[in-house]
């Protein structure tokens, strides 16, 4: 798992370095690598290990997890569509910050450096975005 975790981040880093070439397949490659890594991550023994991604999920859990969800079986794709609509309501910068945290699992420090902001600024922005997303999901009855 540790090897695959490192491989995932090495591949992400390689993709980021090569992104200047404007490869249109880049996002698809990154997506495939992420999906493979996550399948392994969700195995019981892998979930026990701490890591950036686990920390990011724990952070957002309070804003999405509820025993009283109306539709427990909402399809991942439907939820993805709703999250996508929510992302469209954000500014470019906030959308990128959200993706860097909850898709790429970057640390606050890495996001701050990437965006040219301070860590405190990133922390405040992510708090606001999470609260806004929670409200968005409540209004769409995904989170009751």
């Amino acid at each position: 798992m540790l090897f695959l975790h490192c491989l995932y981040y090495l591949l992400i880093d390689l993709c980021l370095r090569l992104r200047g070439a404007g490869n249109p397949l880049l996002s698809h490659i990154v997506k495939i690598v992420r999906n493979i890594s996550l399948k392994i991550y969700w195995r019981k023994e892998a979930a026990k290990r701490s890591g950036h991604y686990k920390i990011a999920l724990e952070e957002i859990e309070g804003y999405i997890a509820d025993q009283k969800t109306v539709e427990d079986e909402i399809e991942a794709r439907e939820l993805a569509r709703i999250i996508g609509e929510f992302l469209d309501t954000l500014t470019l910068e906030n959308r990128v910050i959200f993706m860097r945290r909850y898709w790429f699992a970057d640390s606050y420090k890495d996001i701050a450096e990437f965006m040219g902001f301070s860590e405190k600024n990133i922390s405040v922005r992510l708090t606001r975005i999470r609260e806004k997303m929670k409200q968005y999901l409540i209004e769409r009855e995904v989170f009751v």
Partner: peptide, 13 residues
């Protein structure tokens, strides 16, 4: 919804 569902949804973005 739990974090795994959220994670799966993020994969489908």
């Amino acid at each position: 919804m739990n974090v795994k569902k959220f994670s799966d949804a993020m994969s489908e973005l």
